[in-house]
Nucleic acid binder design. Sequence first.
DNA 1: ACAAAAAGAGACCGAACGTTCTCCCTCACT
DNA 2: AGTGAGGGAGAACGTTCGGTCTCTTTTTGT
Lengths: 195, 195
Amino acid sequence: MSRDTGGGGSTSAARSRLLTTATRIFYAEGIHSVGVDRIIAEAQVTRATLYRHFTGKEELVLAYLGQADLGIRAQVEAARAGEETAAGEVRAVARSIADGIRSPGFRGCAFLNAVAEYPDPAHPVHRAVLAHRQWFLDTVTELLARIGDAPADGDGRHLVMLRDGAMAAGCLFDPELVCETFLRGVEDVVRSRGA
Amino acid sequence: MSRDTGGGGSTSAARSRLLTTATRIFYAEGIHSVGVDRIIAEAQVTRATLYRHFTGKEELVLAYLGQADLGIRAQVEAARAGEETAAGEVRAVARSIADGIRSPGFRGCAFLNAVAEYPDPAHPVHRAVLAHRQWFLDTVTELLARIGDAPADGDGRHLVMLRDGAMAAGCLFDPELVCETFLRGVEDVVRSRGA
DNA sequence: ACAAAAAGAGACCGAACGTTCTCCCTCACT
DNA sequence: AGTGAGGGAGAACGTTCGGTCTCTTTTTGT
């Protein structure tokens, strides 16, 4: 068990525990306010093991965001699967986002939270957030472009803006009301494109 | 100069410098990542002076948010003044928000940024953010209620959601496009109420 | 003029930070 | 059987953190 196939990404029980723990704690409590001691303690790993797999805390943060990125891409893909129309896919993605907001332990968007702690645009963490956001904007814009003939750029930005607002407010207001408002807004956008 | 009138809030040159500096740095760089040393150095104040005016860093953070709250209330009030209709007031507030997003040095919403660093709902900083947001939601909802006869709660939440999304994306995407999308969304809400 | 408050200067504290180090043990593959 | 990487355990590094302290100087109101 826990053998590296020699390919690209390394895998091991300790590294996996480290990443899972870091993901949980960083998402729930923020990044700057938790030290590596907390993470290695809860991951039941020694300090040396951390620095054997990551060059430092920053790389651990980047791995956390990388994992979050993979998770969201999978979530979007899963939501789109099974839908037959582009409008159906957009609605399914929106429902999936709403489900996340309603989930216990929801603490907002991991990327928006992270970028609030890394305002420097040149910082790798900040850039990772921008990259993820660009992917999401492109994805929903392409999806919307398949509904009707109107240019989709504005509607894509509109949808992302609603999502950002919903993710930000989802852990500050009543999640149920936030989801209702969000889904209604998405429906308006989809209908305005003739679906 | 710099004399306390004996009323409620104390005023002094050093305290004012401290608060101005803290506001600037906390907003631009975050809270947990800047130490009191940075603040006292740039405020040209000694350590003892900080702790003479504030019980600790946390109180300084709360004072920072209090100042930001006052600033936004004044901004909203200024935008509303001179408008003759409720719809005009909503549009003016939205334009004022867009102006902020377009301003150089815009780093998003001070409250959303702060709450990302204080996820604990029981923490005073977190609660200060919730209080500010509740005020803003109430304000725009009351304003929207004066346009048309339909219930305004949903539209108020919709408008706040757009604002949150715009503030979050305003320093991550092209501010001009963000403002355009935001103002269009606000216009849709206002028009849907018959204005 | 005088007393009180505010501010400056800087030493100092214990704790936590991220990081590096050595030593030894346990596996898995050759 | 042996070799080398992965991991556990823990000491130690220098730095920074938030916060407290004493002492002196400046300012301010009476």
